[in-house]
């Protein structure tokens, strides 16, 4: 194990333990709720970036993968109410398979067909869920959260801790992929798919790996959703916000490294949480949309890229 990898794992472990320690100290429920949402976006943005930023394939259906995780959990809760980790695993499994399936059908063609398929996917899955009365149909259903959980003073704090751990894990997954031969192959695919294949990169396998991992992480992020909102309905689980934010955040932060989506999700997510208090949700969306278009047009490498450029310029001046 390399020195770099050891350091990264230690930081990850410290963060997870740290988020647990916070729950023993602080009581304000509003902060936990807000932090949960931001952390959820860290997972979604990181997951999106594994396919979008590393491999170069745009997924417009984050909401679909997220909601499939959430509704897999709802279906399981309605049947036998398994513990949360089972929900996480199953949510990840279902959405991962969904990613694999859509990828298999469309990724052998020109990449844009994958994007188009994911665009339509959310609409159709939402319609199917809305017609499935077992999980509440279009009107939605109430989910009772477990009354108590050991070691935590209430369930919201527990959910915060779970999402914090998931965020750390997904950033770690992205980091591991990026630093491995898999990530280097993905970058080659993103840069030039034809050349990558001719240099021995198994492009279809890597692309399917990316859609599967990315989809699975989104599903895992969605699995605790029904416990978090208490009342789940298709319009909230499939909300376009997830699709927009999860691609806007990496675009704003920077897409080629693990750091970009993390920075983007923390900044934009936190700003949104603050803005919900002061601005209407529409204005909120308008700002995200404008930022997205603005960054794509004017700062293609995101904040991380801008920062790198500034640093290079400063170093140049010193030299």
């Amino acid at each position: 194990m390399s020195k770099e990898r050891k350091l990264f794992l230690i930081v990850a472990a410290v963060l997870i333990v740290g988020s647990f320690l916070i729950t023993t100290q602080m009581e304000n429920r509003f902060y936990y709720k807000a932090a949960y949402v931001v952390l959820q976006y860290v997972v979604l943005a990181t997951a999106w970036n594994i396919l979008g930023g590393y491999t170069g394939y745009v997924n417009f259906g984050t909401a679909a993968f997220f909601a499939m995780g959430a509704y897999t959990a709802v279906a399981l809760i309605k049947t036998w109410k398994p513990p949360l980790y089972v929900l996480l695993v199953m949510g990840g499994l279902v959405s991962g398979l969904l990613g694999l399936g859509i990828g298999y059908l469309t990724l052998r063609l020109k990449g844009v067909f994958f994007s188009i398929a994911t665009l339509a996917l959310a609409v159709v899955l939402q319609m199917i869920i809305s017609n499935w009365s077992y999980v509440g149909g279009g009107a939605g259903t109430a989910i009772l959260k477990p009354r108590s959980v050991p070691m935590f003073s209430n369930y919201d704090e527990f959910l915060f801790f779970v999402m914090a751990a998931l965020a750390v894990v997904s950033v770690a997954v992205a980091w591991l992929i990026e630093k491995s031969w898999v990530g280097r192959g993905m970058a080659a695919i993103r840069d030039n798919e034809e050349a990558a294949e001719c240099m021995g990169v198994p492009i279809l396998k890597l692309k399917l790996f990316a859609t599967t991992v990315s989809g699975a992480l989104m599903g895992i992020a969605g699995a605790p959703f029904s416990y978090f909102v208490v009342y789940i309905e298709p319009t909230s689980a499939f909300h376009l916000d997830y699709a927009v934010n999860s691609l806007a955040m990496p675009m704003i932060g920077g897409t080629t490294t693990w750091l970009g989506p993390l920075v983007g999700a923390v900044l934009v997510g936190t700003a949104q949480q603050i803005a919900t208090v002061t601005l209407s949700s529409e204005m909120n969306l308008l700002i995200v949309g404008s930022l997205l278009v603005g960054f794509v047009v004017f700062a293609p490498d995101g904040l991380v890229g801008l920062f790198g450029k500034i640093r290079a310029r400063l170093a140049g001046r010193e030299a």
Partner: peptide
């Protein structure tokens, strides 16, 4: 598939260069 042929020992250069631009 093409990538396996490369592994077997067939390599090509492209008429119009196709570099990996981010590297």
């Amino acid at each position: 598939p093409a990538y396996q042929r490369t592994r077997l020992g067939i390599a090509r250069s492209f008429q119009i260069p196709k570099p990996f631009v981010s590297m």
